[in-house]
Simulated scan of single mutants.
Amino acid sequence: MQFDDYQALRFDRRGRVLTITMNRPDTLNAVDATLHRELSRVFIDAALDPDSDVIVLTGAGRAFCAGGDVGWMQDAIDHPESFETTVSEAKAIIFTLLDCEKPIIARINGPAVGLGATLGLFCDVIFADEATYIADPHVSIGMVAGDGGAVIWPQLIGFARAKEYLLTGDRIPARRAAEIGLINHAVPAAELSAAVDAFADRLAGGSTKAIRWTKVTTNIALKQLAHSMMDTGLAYEALTNISDDHRQRVDAFLKRTATGSKAR
């Protein structure tokens, strides 16, 4: 299978392991319209890829994924009708990620924020650089965490902890995230690649059908939950997309960014 038509994702192979890299390092892999569209179909293509049995998802450069690109957010504010496409793609990202029978390992090499956190946490096994952090600060920009964050966080750390972090947008250091079960492993940066490779090789060398179908069986309840919640969460997110609060927060962020650029 060829992946030549992707622009914002990079693909590398190592044996039967396919690594998908979000490849916008200059923006800390912030998700713009192109990356969002490609994420909505990449797990279908990866699932059909005959040359791999295990998938690794990671980010290029210093971050895993910094969440939504603020310029893209401003465009959605200016053209709210475009959010219908965003909603459709957002559901496809989560459902195709869950539907992919191949095990997906998250290699969180730097901050995983907003949608970046959602992507990482919906993977099957999660490794992170112990010096980084995970956060879902949708509320900090006046939006509902409708992209799947409200689905997955409570399943991993319980409702009380999940609501504390989702309602504040506070960061969780990777070590703490591992302690409370949000992720599987927090390891030193110098050991991250080796740890991910070793686990990927273990799965690739295992009983492929048994591993795939164990994932499928385990994901049934999570898929049912996602299907029951995503429409509501995304509908509320669409409402906050046109709210004054969101508009003001995005405008303030863009002004701070512009001022910082001029200062440099």
Rank of each mutant, 00 (worst) to 15 (best):
Phe3His: 05
Phe3Lys: 03
Arg10Asp: 11
Phe11Asn: 08
Arg13Phe: 11
Arg16Gln: 12
Val17Trp: 05
Val17Asn: 04
Val17Pro: 00
Leu18Thr: 12
Leu18Glu: 02
Thr19Glu: 07
Pro25Phe: 03
Asp26Thr: 05
Asp26Pro: 02
Thr27Cys: 07
Asn29Gln: 11
Ala30Val: 06
Val31Pro: 12
Asp32Ala: 12
Ala33Tyr: 05
Ala33Leu: 08
Val42Tyr: 09
Asp45Arg: 14
Ala46Thr: 02
Asp49Cys: 03
Asp49Pro: 00
Pro50His: 05
Val54Glu: 11
Ala60Asp: 00
Ala60Leu: 01
Gly61Thr: 12
Arg62Leu: 07
Phe64Cys: 13
Cys65Gln: 06
Cys65Ala: 09
Ala66His: 02
Asp69Ala: 07
Ala76Leu: 05
Ile77Ala: 03
Ile77Gln: 04
Glu81Ser: 10
Glu84Cys: 05
Thr85Ser: 05
Val87Asp: 04
Ser88Glu: 09
Glu89Leu: 08
Ala90Asn: 13
Ala92Gly: 06
Ile94Tyr: 13
Thr96Val: 00
Glu101Trp: 01
Glu101Lys: 05
Glu101Ala: 07
Lys102Val: 05
Ile104Met: 03
Ala106His: 01
Arg107Pro: 04
Asn109Phe: 13
Gly110Pro: 10
Ala112His: 03
Val113Tyr: 04
Gly116Phe: 00
Ala117Gln: 07
Leu121Ala: 04
Leu121Asn: 01
Phe122Gly: 15
Phe127Asn: 02
Ala128Ile: 10
Glu130Arg: 09
Glu130Pro: 07
Glu130Phe: 02
Asp136Glu: 06
Asp136Pro: 08
Pro137His: 04
His138Cys: 10
Val139Cys: 02
Ile141Tyr: 00
Val144Thr: 03
Ala145Tyr: 01
Asp147Pro: 15
Asp147Leu: 01
Gly148Lys: 13
Ile152Met: 11
Pro154Ala: 00
Gln155Ile: 14
Gln155Gly: 04
Ile157Arg: 15
Ala160Tyr: 10
Arg161Lys: 15
Lys163Arg: 14
Glu164Ala: 08
Glu164Tyr: 12
Tyr165Val: 11
Leu166Phe: 01
Leu166Thr: 10
Thr168Phe: 13
Asp170Cys: 11
Ala174Gly: 13
Arg175Met: 08
Ala177Asn: 08
Ala177Met: 12
Glu179Tyr: 10
Gly181Lys: 07
Ile183Trp: 09
Asn184Cys: 10
Ala186Gln: 05
Pro188Tyr: 04
Ala190Pro: 05
Leu192Trp: 01
Leu192Arg: 03
Ser193Gln: 06
Ala195Cys: 05
Ala200Met: 02
Ala200Gln: 08
Ser207Cys: 13
Ser207Gly: 14
Thr208Arg: 06
Thr208Ala: 07
Ala210Met: 10
Ile211Ala: 11
Ile211Ser: 14
Trp213Lys: 15
Lys215Val: 10
Asn219Ile: 07
Leu222Met: 06
Gln224Ile: 05
Gln224Met: 09
His227Gly: 01
Met229His: 00
Met230Val: 15
Asp231Thr: 15
Gly233Phe: 02
Glu237Asp: 09
Asn241Thr: 06
Asp245Lys: 01
Ala252Phe: 03
Phe253Cys: 04
Leu254Pro: 01
Arg256His: 04
Arg256Ser: 13
Ser261Phe: 08
Lys262Met: 12
Lys262Leu: 12
Arg264Ala: 14
